[in-house]
Each structure stands twice: as structure tokens, then as C-alpha cells.
Design a binder for these strands. Structure first.
Lengths: 145, 145
DNA sequence: TGGTAATAGTTGGTTTTGTAACTAACAAGC
DNA sequence: GCTTGTTAGTTACAAAACCAACTATTACCA
């Protein structure tokens, strides 16, 4: 067994993805942390409510692939900060509908705008073709279509 | 300010990257966890030593962009499991050279082979062109060339 | 109906991470 | 040679993640 048939893990896809994901999320994480005191999971919940409107915690978990305990705690903090309201459903009193407050919506819109600029910077050196392939392959890898 | 100019965050690159990275690493993480009881950081250290041969903790940190405390703890556990040895350098007694033991090398080679197969499955539905673009864009995003 | 199973969400205890302060060894300037 | 600053690695404490057990409510079905 020689060293020759050893696969070069430097290009190992899960590794490249992890490194690129971390690098890409870092700069933006600073923004939502410093401007709004949000943690990553809290930002994600905010962003799902901003996109989809009212949702339940379980619904967000399914879309974002986040565990319900993480969401439960994120929602708690978002409610404390008055970015989100919760309302028990009369038709099924186990569920709570989550909604952005006006303050939550303002934060969402602001961060949305920042995100847009941030992404442009990230992709500055890439061609349109590369960007298309990148997005489409990532979506497939993430099982998002 | 209408809703119309709101950027669609479903395609937000840091989000897609995070989701794809998590999905891609999950299956492989189970392997190194179940077969060798390794944590993610421990696997990364093992893999750097497998690729580059002997290194210091700081050297691994620089390559892998891992904080030195994380590496310190990972190395401790790898030494306990007899996958890694450490040796203080006489020329600079602050540094320790880390090396794989034979058992560490065996684990590395085994996981390397699994990784290779695993990656093939991940990329099964992609064309060669897509794979090239994916790898090259990820490397640039991760500042790895 | 009444009993069992399933679902929504929370809480508690353990692991793991993150951050800062720490020790030990070396380097550089005076 | 001292003093000051830097670097390698560890440790300690706080924050966050993980997992399992829990409450409350609804669904299934005999």
C-alpha cells in the first residue's frame, strides 16, 4: 500500500464547502450581531419570517433544517427583543403562529439590503456563468431543488 | 418603500453555502464519529497531518483556520487515543511537532478511502464542468487559491 | 368514550465552543 | 545581562449547542 493512490483531501468537497461557508458568513454575521445583537439562529428565524410571513416554529425548523430546541430559544429571544410576536392557534392550541413586529420588519429589511450588497462583494470576481453554476450546484447539494 | 425591491434571501449565498456544507458533511461525519470516535475538529487535525506530514499546532491552525484552543483540545484527545504523538522541538522549546502514529495513519488512510467514495456519491448528478466550476469558486470563496 | 400514540413546544443536564487570561520560551534593543 | 515584547500552547470560565425527558394538546381507533 503506497502513498500514491491516496486521494487529495485538500479538494474534498465537504471541506471546501465548510471553509467557503464559514468565510462567507463571517462578515455578514458581524453585521447582524453588531447592529441588532442577533445570533446566527435568530437571524435565520427572522429571515424566514421576513420571507414567508407568518410561520410556526416547526415550519421554520423544516425549512431551515434547524432543531426545534434551537428555534424555541431563538424565538424566545426575538420575542424579548420585540422583533417577533407569538399567538396560539385556536384551531390547534399546540401551535403558535410567529410574526414579525414592525421593528422586526424594519430589521429584516435593513439586513436584507445589507445582505444584497454583501453578496455582490462576495461575488465580485465571478462571471455570470460561474455564479449560475455555483448557485445551482449548491441548491442541489442542499436538497433545495 | 414597497416589498418589490426586497432581495430574495432564499438564494443568499452564505445561506446556500451553509446549508450545502451541513448537508454534505453530515454523512461523512457519521463515519469518522462512529468508526473512530472522532469529532469534527479532530478529524480535521488528523487529515492535515495525513496530508502534510509533521506539523505544529499553529501550522495546522493556519492551514485549517482553526483557533489554537480548538486545536489544543483536539490534539489532546488524539494523543490520548494514540493517533498522534507530540515532540518538543529542541531548537525552539515552545513548539511541538505533531505526527501520526501507525494507528493514526491507518485511520487516516481508511477515512481517506471512505471520503473518496463519499465524494463520488455527492457529485454523482453533476457534470464535469459543473464540478470544476464548483470547486474553483469554492476555493476562491474560501481564500484557498 | 377511553386509552394509546403522535405532535408542538419547553426545560434541564451534559458537551462543545469561544474568549480571555495565563505559563513558558524565545527575540530584540538597550 | 535586563527589560519589554512576541509566540506556542494550555487552562478557566462563560456562552452556545446537543440530546433526552418533559408538558400540553390533538389524533387515532378499538
Amino acid at each position: 500500500m503506497t502513498q500514491i493512490d491516496i486521494f487529495d483531501l485538500r479538494g474534498f468537497l465537504p471541506y471546501l464547502l465548510a471553509q467557503a461557508a464559514e468565510e462567507a458568513s463571517l462578515g455578514f454575521a458581524q453585521v447582524y450581531k453588531e447592529k441588532y445583537g442577533l445570533l446566527r439562529t435568530e437571524w435565520r428565524v427572522l429571515f424566514h419570517l421576513g420571507i414567508y410571513g407568518e410561520m410556526t416554529a416547526t415550519g421554520i425548523g423544516a425549512k431551515a433544517k434547524l432543531h426545534k430546541t434551537k428555534i424555541s430559544r431563538a424565538v424566545q429571544r426575538l420575542v424579548e427583543r420585540r422583533f417577533v410576536t407569538r399567538e396560539r392557534l385556536d384551531s390547534d392550541r399546540r401551535q403558535e403562529i410567529l410574526r414579525l413586529t414592525p421593528a422586526g420588519m424594519r430589521a429584516y429589511r435593513d439586513l436584507n439590503a445589507v445582505a444584497q450588497q454583501y453578496e455582490q462583494k462576495l461575488l465580485a470576481g465571478f462571471s455570470d456563468g460561474e455564479i449560475d453554476v455555483l448557485r445551482s450546484t449548491l441548491k442541489r447539494l442542499a436538497n433545495l431543488g
